[in-house]
Design a protein around this nucleic acid. Structure first.
Lengths: 362, 362
DNA sequence: TTTCCGCACTCAAGCGCATTAGTAGGGCAG
DNA sequence: CTGCCCTACTAATGCGCTTGAGTGCGGAAA
């Protein structure tokens, strides 16, 4: 015995009650000319009183767009839900979207193909007016796809694309200064005396992974570090731990490790703890993305602190600009500050000169 | 110079090309009687070839529902994005929704009022066909609200509601056996010899927090533990650390701590590490929700391992059943298995008998 | 006074789909 | 051959909103 829910009022109801035509109601409620201020007020009052809200489908059908933007997350389930980055980002995105009364259609898929298929379907069904794209890749097919579909999009964390003079790019981009952050991190460690630095990176197919790797190499060359290297992982804790073990087992193990996200870093810290390697006395650790996690563990992890929510907000702003008809363009996020915490300290010196630790519990 | 995007085909295009009326197309594509098998096939082929997809808004407008379900997350930004629980849950939800071609409209808001306002707006705008509700509360206003609106809903992690015989509840519920898990955790610790157990709980306004607290009390009474207690937090790492410090500073500190989520637990572990308290020799720790995090830290945290993605899938299934016209009902998740890891061990014995640790670094 | 214009508003069409009512044509019983 | 039903389809309507094309009216210009 389910109560029949209250019927939702339509513009017709308002028109009837206000004694005007539906068109007048439409004009009044959309701030269009064609109604006198008095009538407008009256209509507005009636609408308010009836609790009227425009029916999304009807709006969309008459060419107004769906008032929705999409976001697809394509990550294998294993590495999903471990980084605080995404929820923070989404939280920031929402702040901006809420102001514009835009909804966020969210989808989690397994891989890139499914992601592209989702974009196509959303486009074909007119479900979204635009999309936010994360995790830019090497030779990314998505800008072309979205550009071809004419679906407004913002690629988050991508450098400015190269386009011919006068041309405008297919989609907007919001850059995070990966190279700059890497340089700052290496600089921080170098200043502490570290000369052997290893970078435990994320998925090699992501463009930012490549940029970070390249930047490390460049910085190492600049500073004359001959023993700087990167190893890639899938962002999972298990690969983070495994990579850490492998790296520490080397003949001349690094004295400092840079991890591409917080999960990898925490896994690395656990390996150090397990081996009895003192952090930061024998080994310094840095996490790329700051998070509650980095501050929760002991010692707390040194990390670049950026305002991820603001990052999301800016991305959403770039998208709404696009929806308003602005041409696609590039925005650059400011360089975050490196916050030194307990996990980094002066490089070890003396005979041992490295994190070999007590007898390995191989 | 943006290319004009390809025009998306409509049923009219199909009708034209197949040489039939629009109605025939509609019948054919919706498996309705009224077209011969031959014509149906022809129409289907044309549709396929044109890459036709029904336009969501048009469908919705003609009474088919929006093919979208909603999910609102109402948590203060501070505690957002720290738990892997939600993304895992959403990931599971999506698996089920994808099969039914349902979209997920996602919203992050600051508080309960905003959450309710979101439901009202979605309902008024016909934006969603149903919603998934998380974080049930004491005296939760949402079931009544949603029931009154006639918006199908599944409350995740709620016990079966009390309804009069023959009546059906306003919304469906999907129960997680909080009491059972707590009993199992206490049983695990009790078997290890622990007699002084403290529960670092989450937000007191959540119903599951109260159930856990009540269950701890009941188990303690049953087992004759006089020194079991719960303290509540806001789920943040800082309160988790603070609560841990406070509890450990007591005259007779507990020998085991149960944390209501992984973030709290990791924060607690960091406090122990910082104070030089050996885990699990001097202090045992348990985290409520398993996650990569629990396995990443050292020692790894004992936790009940449940399949959170499956949980989400079941919730989505309950909702789709509702959308199919089934009456609201209750489903119960199975009791998860407790996985003992490095963070729990036998209760400390001897003169010291507790985790006072080395001189406190007050 | 007449003409014209602009304001305030109404009418009607249309967005893409579902659906109900209608219609042509063929098979079958009478 | 007529009347009837059934199948296979078409025509028309409506969902709620926007929008371009009217329409009636009062006031300013001539």
């Amino acid at each position: 015995m389910r109560r029949t829910p209250a019927r939702r009022p339509t513009m017709k109801d308002i028109a009837l009650r206000a004694g005007v035509s539906e068109s007048a109601v439409s004009f009044a409620l959309n701030d269009r000319p064609g109604v006198s201020p008095v009538t407008r007020d009256r209509i507005r009052r009636v609408a308010e009183q009836l609790g009227w809200q425009p029916r999304a489908a009807a709006r969309a059908l008459s060419g107004e767009g769906s008032a929705t933007v999409g976001l697809v997350l394509a990550r294998p389930a294993r590495t999903l839900g471990v980084e605080s980055f995404f929820l923070q980002l989404v939280s920031g995105i929402q702040e901006e979207l809420a102001e514009r009364k835009l909804g966020l259609l969210f989808q989690v898929v397994e891989g890139l193909d499914a992601e592209c298929a989702t974009y196509r379907r959303w486009w074909a069904e007119h479900r979204v007016d635009g999309v936010l794209v994360v995790d830019p890749r090497q030779d990314d097919p998505r800008p072309d796809l979205l550009g071809g579909l004419g679906l407004p999009a913002v690629m988050i964390g991508a450098p400015a694309p190269e386009v011919a003079e006068g041309e405008s790019p297919a989609i907007s981009t919001l850059g995070a200064d990966d190279a700059g952050i890497m340089a700052a991190l290496v600089g921080h460690l170098h200043a502490l005396g570290h000369r052997r630095i290893t970078h435990i990176a994320g998925l090699p197919e992501f463009a930012h992974t490549q940029r970070r790797i390249a930047s490390l190499r460049a910085e190492a060359a600049r500073l004359g570090l001959t023993e700087a290297a990167s190893v890639t992982t899938d962002y999972s804790d298990s690969e983070g731990a495994a990579a850490t073990r492998r790296v520490l087992d080397r003949d001349r193990p690094p004295t400092a490790l840079i991890y591409d996200n917080d999960v990898l870093a925490v896994a690395g810290l656990a390996v150090a703890t397990e081996r009895g390697i003192r952090v930061p006395d024998q080994l310094s650790l840095v996490a790329w993305d700051d998070s509650v996690l980095c501050r929760s563990v002991h010692p707390a992890l040194t990390a670049p602190v950026r305002d991820t929510a603001a990052f999301g907000r800016h991305a959403a702003q770039a998208l709404t600009a696009l929806l308003d008809g602005a041409p696609a363009g590039h925005t650059q996020e400011p360089l975050p500050r490196i916050e030194p915490r307990g996990s980094t300290g002066p490089a070890p010196t003396g005979p041992q000169e490295g994190p070999s630790g007590p007898p390995k519990s191989s």
